[in-house]
């Protein structure tokens, strides 16, 4: 009887675990972002800095979703949220779930902005939306501190890969 119970318990635990989705948003420090920017990869790195409170950022998220859907064979899209880590469960995760965002979403928990903004890009004033595009193979980078226009993202990726 006890054996049955244990088996039941174990299978219940396993079942529950398998239905828990992988974390939707990974909380990171700057070193993780730095790894993304400097890693050795065949794929073009597209890193978008956004936040749930930033209207122009939200407006352009579909471009990144579409890029991820159509070109993930040669482009790696990461959405880096600059929301405060305090609102991770209350705002960021529900937002990502509601929008059904499938690119990797990370929340950069680094409040001392002046210590890392220049390491991303010296010309960045700190305003968002901002997007960094890197071709790791050639070392070519593009940084856009503004809203993107329709088609602009794929155009830049084509420019940087040819």
């Amino acid at each position: 009887m006890l054996r049955y119970l244990i088996t039941l318990l174990i299978s219940l635990v396993l079942f529950t675990c398998s239905t828990i989705p992988t974390p939707k948003v990974q909380v990171i420090k700057f070193d993780t972002l730095e790894l993304l920017m400097t890693r050795d990869s065949e794929k073009v790195e597209v890193i978008n800095f956004w936040a749930t409170w930033c209207k122009p950022c939200i407006k352009e998220l579909p471009y990144f979703q579409e890029l991820h859907n159509l070109r993930s064979y040669h482009v790696n899209v990461t959405l880096v949220s600059l929301d405060y880590v305090d609102v991770l469960h209350e705002k960021v995760i529900p937002f990502v779930e509601m929008r059904q965002l499938t690119p990797q979403v990370m929340l950069l928990d680094e409040i001392d902005y002046n210590s890392w903004i220049d390491k991303v890009e010296p010309s960045w004033s700190g305003a968002i939306p901002a997007t960094l595009i890197i071709n790791h193979k050639t070392g070519e980078r593009r940084f856009l501190e503004r809203e993107l226009k329709t088609g602009e993202l794929t155009q830049i990726i084509d420019e940087i890969t040819t």
């Binding site: 930033c54 122009p56 600059l82 902005y113 002046n114 903004i117 220049d118 960045w124 004033s125 700190g126 305003a127 968002i128 939306p129 501190e145 503004r146």
Partner: peptide, 9 residues
Amino acid sequence: KTKAIGCTI
């Protein structure tokens, strides 16, 4: 001179 994350104008 310092930098900070902020809302774009």
